[in-house]
């Protein structure tokens, strides 16, 4: 059996997952007749926004993601769940090439955004990341004012032609992120002075200020309390009207609440994909069932 662990030295960003070794699945007495290396469920969707085929990711000589095929539809919320170290965050970070910053990380396969190859060597990552934004696990506002946090993206991309326009973008983004009422009187105060949940909403506002087409969320609520989490989940629901959202989460309730489709990852393989309702009520694969019923993971 392969016991897959991501080398924490080569990938500091996914260290959270790497620190916990993955249980050897043979000890769980699982159904071996159905191999988890084959994805169960329909990966194709109508109205495709992003399309991934045979994606393999390795950090040095440790492979983290094995041959994952997945499509993401326009304006859908797709949740990726699975035990720690299953490669879901790594896979997510491929979608806007954030893995480029990790030394020794090699990605192969085809990843397409509107039929454009993301890993085309000629592709510039700067506009790609403007189209595919990202919200991280730990709220990471810049140590600048709330206004500057949101205005930074539009500024570097030149989205606003005047101060008035920029003010408008900032206000709209903060409104969409549900932070406007709390922040409008303290726009000039540091973003780091906000509470954890507010900081995460600020990060979401910062991301949507550049009007991306896809928003990747890497466990956005894992550092937040239940009330702040509920607020973010509501927000995800509202945002799905305008954006395509891929969210990695450890909380199955969260996946069930916010997503349209759910993908279950195991040891670097995509085990099952399907409508969220189906996955949680009628999982096809034994591993998925065990995971969502809390028998392991």
């Amino acid at each position: 059996m392969t016991t897959m662990t991501v080398d924490s030295n080569t990938s500091p960003q996914s260290s959270q997952e790497a620190t916990q070794p993955v249980a050897d699945i043979s000890s769980n007495g699982l159904d071996s007749s159905r191999d988890y290396r084959q994805t169960v469920g329909k990966i194709e969707v109508a109205n495709t926004k992003m399309s991934m085929r045979d994606v393999n990711v390795s950090y040095g000589d440790k492979q983290a993601v094995f041959g994952v095929d997945l499509d993401i539809a326009k304006n859908e919320v797709i949740a990726m769940i699975g035990p720690s170290g299953c490669g879901k965050s790594t896979f997510l970070r491929c979608m806007n090439r954030m893995n480029d910053t990790i030394e020794g990380c090699v990605v192969s396969g085809s990843l397409k955004l509107d039929d454009q190859d993301i890993y085309d060597p000629k592709l510039d990552v700067v506009p790609l990341r403007a189209r595919v934004g990202m919200v991280f696990q730990k709220p990471n506002p810049f140590p600048k004012s709330i206004y500057d946090n949101v205005a930074y993206g539009p500024q570097i991309h030149g989205l606003a032609n005047s101060k008035v326009e920029l003010d408008e973008i900032v206000e709209n983004s903060l409104r969409k992120a549900g932070l406007w009422n709390e922040a409008k009187d303290r726009l000039d105060q540091p973003g780091t002075g906000l509470s954890g949940g507010q900081q995460q909403r600020l990060c979401i506002a910062r991301t949507i200020a550049v009007s991306p087409e896809v928003i990747l969320m890497d466990e956005p609520c894992s550092a937040l309390d239940p009330i702040a989490t509920a607020r973010i989940e509501e927000l995800i629901d509202e945002l799905s009207a305008n954006f395509t959202i891929a969210i990695v989460t450890h909380s199955m309730q969260q996946a069930a609440r916010v997503s349209h489709r759910t993908a279950y990852f195991h040891l670097g393989y995509l085990v099952e994909i399907g409508d969220t309702d189906d996955i949680f009520t009628n999982p096809k694969h034994r591993l998925t069932e065990d995971y969502i019923t809390g028998r392991f993971g």
Binding site: P12, M98, T101, R129, F136, N140, Y152, G153, I156, V210
Partner: peptide, 13 residues
Amino acid sequence: PSIREAALGLGAS
């Protein structure tokens, strides 16, 4: 590194 990631994730060079 989270600061670098935040900026890179927004599309900063």
